[in-house]
Design a protein around this nucleic acid. Structure first.
Lengths: 106, 106
DNA sequence: TAACTATATAAGTGGTTGCTTATACAGTCA
DNA sequence: TGACTGTATAAGCAACCACTTATATAGTTA
């Protein structure tokens, strides 16, 4: 890993909203609509954060029906470090949300 | 450590030039004039990077004569992680420099 | 099919960042 | 003292970033 690659990685995870997203999806895949209320942010904003994280292969996306489920990529070389960094953060509460998938099997 | 503190920390270390600086000072304290030629960058630019790193307590500065020697702060809570991240980077060669402290005892 | 839901993308914008040059300040040494 | 060296700070600027709103796309369901 060269300087520029590490820089890009650290910039991807080193942003407040993205740290929160990563902290949330430790506990299992989430779709964007699960996060809108909690993050108090527009849907496109969250989508753009997901794209940034995906560019770095930090997260995986799985399309199922109208939803895209986002999860941590456990095969990323820096996944153990990421887990450790996220463990430094306090737990955040995920607000209940009005997504239509609420009762769905995950 | 909360989200905003981790964000600030990652932003401090997640920048190309600062990563290079940190990689260099692993091997011992350096002053700014030691880095100008190697980084091919103005003295104020390097000074500003040092200030940013100092704000996060990632580095220590020790004034001696006209020089300020910068070193890693081994007491920083994330020092072990930092060392590990820097270990991922290839070694860089520090160019010879015209500083007047060349023959000085460090 | 048409309305609805979830997501992605595009375009625009204000704030931040990393550099530059200019300048001030402090220590060294003839 | 005065010239010199090393550093820090200030101001300005171009590029980048994280948001917004508007819109396009795709799947679901009545």
């Amino acid at each position: 890993m060269n300087h520029s690659e590490l820089e890009n990685y650290l910039k991807a995870i080193g942003e407040g909203t993205r740290l929160k997203i990563l902290k949330f999806i430790i506990d299992g895949p989430l779709c964007i609509c699960d996060l809108i209320e909690t993050l108090d942010m527009s849907q496109p904003a969250i989508s753009q954060h997901m794209r940034r994280l995906k560019e770095e292969n930090i997260v995986l996306d799985e399309k199922r029906g109208r939803w895209t489920y986002w999860s941590l990529n456990a095969k990323h070389p820096q996944y153990p470090i990421l887990l450790h960094l996220l463990s430094l953060l306090p737990t955040l509460e995920l607000l209940k949300h009005p997504c239509t998938n609420e009762t769905e099997e995950r």
